[in-house]
């Protein structure tokens, strides 16, 4: 017997680590990975609530989130490859064309 709130707190911890990683890291691939971590944390919350209510709607939502995340990863990594061809760098500090 584990309180549902523990699962929700674990989701919050993972989400905040994802936010911190998104802000600290300078490598664009790692930033993309922290987005995946945040999506996973939210998925855990969805599954915990689905268990709490005894319904599968939350699990179906997680299924759709997974599909969209997979599509997003494919397109995002293709954009990263295209960016690397143009700029020859993965550091987000050096991708500042719009700033100047």
């Amino acid at each position: 017997m584990v309180p549902t709130s523990y699962y929700l707190i674990l989701g919050a911890v993972l989400f905040c680590i994802g936010i911190a990683s998104f802000l600290i890291r300078r490598n664009i691939i790692t930033i993309f990975m922290s987005i995946e971590l945040m999506l996973n944390a939210v998925n855990l919350t969805f599954v915990a609530f689905a268990h709490m209510w005894g319904q599968v709607a939350g699990q179906i939502f997680v299924f759709f989130v997974m599909v969209v995340a997979a599509a997003e990863a494919a397109v995002g990594l293709a954009i990263i490859i295209a960016l690397f061809r143009v700029r020859q760098t993965l550091n987000v500090d050096q991708v500042n064309l719009l700033k100047n």
């Binding site: 309180p3 709130s5 268990h51």
Partner: peptide
């Protein structure tokens, strides 16, 4: 979450 711990219930 900790405040509403009782309302959220337990998992089996």
């Amino acid at each position: 979450f900790l405040k509403n711990r009782a309302a959220l219930g337990n998992t089996q």
